[in-house]
Design a protein around this nucleic acid. Structure first.
Lengths: 225, 225
DNA sequence: AAAAATATAAATCTTGAAATTTCGACCCGA
DNA sequence: TCGGGTCGAAATTTCAAGATTTATATTTTT
């Protein structure tokens, strides 16, 4: 799609701050203030924000500047819906086309993730290993669909996932982690390796549907704090 | 997502030129040249191109400027795949949630489209009513998924459709129009109104799969010229 | 003659300031 | 007290020029 901007640090750094809850939702993002932290001009910040806005992390209104995205329940629902759709389709194709290499990468990603989640269970808290866990969770889900053969699908999924993560981390929900993760991730891997598409689709839906809670009362409650 | 830019005309006009084949794929888009046509500054053009690049219509490389998107067969395949996925899911939800109002809008959109396509058949050429047909075709497909209740899904579909249209119009393929359109559009509407989800999904796939030709030899050949 | 190196030209990116628009406080009249 | 209007400050957008990078043409070397 597009490469990095002239000052890669700004783009990466702002993106990170946005998805890790560095800004409160709805907060105004003034190029003139952000400029100082990076020692660059207003216009450069402006370009970066313009890009982040098209990635969905930032909202933009003409003559009214940029804001950190505010998430309504409806938007979070739509986000989850899209994520389920893309992940189900991506994994289905991967199960069909993926070979031994994909299976190996998947088991590797799951191994790392489950190991980290075991540590979380032992510690009783996510915070100490939050960054590690976030990276592992992303790598796991990305690997699931990595053999789908479509860059477009993977890029679209990545954009959705970023917004998704932004919402999760922003809330006081123990950062989106909940104990059932361990069992559910394993279940997904098993179904994928067994090439049981229907089962895999169902388990992905169950795994992600917790976030549908507000609009889908049949889904199980997410663990809060 | 994002609103218009300060000079709406440039954004809309460049977008139009891109999806109607006003630039040859891969062509360099130099802000300094485009500036003249709109009487504005380089930076303004730059911002517009930056946005179009995130919409997928333009590619951007750091320090190497902008280009009109080049479509590989692979990319076109991925585009079609995503379009099928989104349209199938969108119409399925619309069939479930859409009421009388949706049915009315759908039949209206189809009526307009079929009327225009009848004229095309009579004339034996698309060009005279190309713009009208393009708009009607878009409105038909957009209406199909309009009751899905997800702005995110509709926006994502719109972005895919734009790229899709860009590829179609660029080629010398009679602008993507082919006679089977008439029957296929009707078949989709009938299945949708009958709330036959499986049939509707299948017909949408068949309708769009012609563009999968290069990578899916089982799909019927697109009519050329 | 082909390849590498250099010099020149062109295009891109960044910057700071001017022009335009929005936001908020204050004042006035009802 | 409330609604509307005016004014000033702040923020956003546009602009043109300077700095940096890339592309092209020419020369040099093997």
């Amino acid at each position: 799609m597009t490469d990095k901007i002239g000052t890669p640090d700004i783009h990466e750094d702002l993106r990170r701050r946005l998805i890790t809850g560095g800004f409160v939702p709805g907060q105004k993002l003034k190029p003139d203030e952000l400029r100082g932290a990076y020692g660059c001009s207003i216009n450069t910040v402006r370009e970066v924000l313009l890009r982040l806005s098209s990635a969905g992390l930032v909202t933009f209104q003409d003559q009214r500047g940029f804001r950190a995205r505010e998430s309504s329940l409806r938007h979070q629902h739509e986000l989850t819906q899209m994520r389920v759709l893309l992940e189900q389709e991506g994994v289905a194709i991967s199960m069909r086309d993926g070979g031994l290499e994909w299976e190996a990468q998947l088991t590797a990603a799951h191994h790392k993730l489950s190991h980290i989640e075991a540590r979380i269970a032992a510690l009783g808290a996510v915070e100490p290993v939050l960054d590690t866990w976030c990276a592992a969770e992303w790598e796991f889900h990305e690997t699931l669909i990595s053999a789908c053969g479509s860059d477009l699908m993977r890029q679209t999924y990545a954009a959705i996932y970023d917004q998704f993560r932004q919402q999760l981390v922003t809330r006081e929900t123990n950062f989106g982690y909940y104990p059932n993760n361990v069992a559910e991730h394993l279940g997904i891997v098993e179904a994928a390796l067994a090439r049981d598409e229907a089962l895999c689709r169902r388990r992905i839906h169950e795994h992600l549907a917790r976030n549908l809670l507000p609009l889908d009362a049949t889904a199980p409650m997410r663990k809060l704090a």
